[in-house]
Nucleic acid binder design. Structure first.
Lengths: 220, 220
DNA sequence: AACCTCCCAGTTGGATCCACATTGAATCCA
DNA sequence: TGGATTCAATGTGGATCCAACTGGGAGGTT
């Protein structure tokens, strides 16, 4: 039986370090610009610097970390760069939505529907995760793993700067409605509608973020 | 004087290893499926395993290498996967062409024109490099580095499987004509035309590759 | 003769050691 | 007192050492 058993209590490896640090960044727990040293991270996870170095090299390749004077830091991005990231994300996700409307299987639909239902009841961090999962499921429904991975990677970079408020109830309801509309278009196999509905959704998210950046910019 | 001087004769570092191995893969000098060991590569470049490990981790993140039993290998892709990579590349490059037609600067135009002229005279490997550079310059003209990097990365994955014939004189002339048409559309600031001209170009390249894959498939 | 078992060679992943570069501060001189 | 210079502290990058794992082959047994 060559089934690889994930030993939960076993010593953590480089992949685990990569996953954990990545999650910390994506969930916004590492403030951009704050430098973290290899030794510091190694001590934190109770391993030597070797696996940390490996993880950091991969994170740098992902664009989630950059090498700075001493140590690594989440790159500080200008508002223009955030807009640029959104532009890339929009290109990828709209294409994925279009393909999803053409290729979605019944299983894809079931997954999306399940996530929509879960989102109805969830709140806080759970809601954020479910909504992220909805977008990932939509990308998977396009049945092009390369495309899905690219979109997911760009979104991870964006997430690193998001204060992740998602608090306002009206935003919550808007998001839910827009997701539902995208789902309906995918369900009806209507690529053009899927694209335009998702475009409306992502454009709204982008404009909210840009407005927040403008406020933060004025304050500083 | 904080200018970082690239000492040419100095010992090579992890970044150099990364660049060199990457070039070897992209230029097709590493046959897919052949496994290379860390120690082997380290000996080849005259360094220890440490920088090689770092480079391999990054290459794996790029999708150019995958960890296999013992060592690393360029992943073997099915024809379906190659089609999938092309689909992603087309999405990215068409979007880039559209943006390039909107945003190109005079400098961008000059660069593209220069590459077109160079391509007239070049042959063999030089021609391949110049044509690749044309596509990269087109992506740069879109003025979205994120998008350019993504497209470039996907194309690198595709290049790893290309036998890189580019030999047939009629293909050479077709490529040159199509590049010229794309250039004209970008010059005229006509996004829709830039998109459709590039689409025709990339679709032809894709179909050629698929035909070659079908032949190879039948042979085996 | 076939199959099973055990041992050994080879390789990766993690830990530690060492050399070099850079920064900040403290000190000394003008 | 201000500025330049030197020195120690800190941290990365590379090299080496060690442990765990896998696969194949040799040898024995049925």
């Amino acid at each position: 039986m060559a089934a690889r058993i994930e030993n939960p209590a076993k010593h953590i490896g480089a992949d685990d370090i990569y996953t954990r640090i990545r999650r910390r960044i994506v969930e916004g727990h590492v403030t951009p610009g704050l430098t973290l040293g290899e030794a510091q991270l190694a001590a934190e996870y109770g391993v030597s610097r070797t696996p940390v170095r490996n993880a950091l090299a991969r994170l740098e390749q992902d664009g989630l970390f950059e090498r700075v004077r001493f140590g690594y830091a989440v790159p500080v991005r200008s508002p223009e760069q955030v807009v640029e990231l959104f532009e890339a994300r929009i290109i990828l996700d709209l294409a994925a939505a279009e393909l999803a409307a053409q290729r979605r299987s019944e299983l894809d639909l079931a997954r999306l529907r399940h996530l929509l239902e879960q989102a109805e009841a969830a709140t806080g961090a759970d809601l954020i995760h479910i909504n992220d999962a909805f977008h990932d499921a939509l990308r998977d429904a396009a049945h092009n793993p390369t495309l899905a991975q690219l979109a997911s990677r760009v979104e991870a970079q964006l997430a690193a700067y998001e204060a992740r408020p998602a608090g306002a109830p009206d935003d919550r309801q808007s998001t839910q409605d827009e997701h539902r509309r995208v789902f309906d278009a995918v369900h009806d196999r209507d690529p053009a509608r899927a694209r335009s509905e998702l475009q409306a959704h992502v454009h709204r998210a982008r404009d909210l973020r840009i407005a927040a950046l403008a406020r933060a910019d004025r304050k500083s």
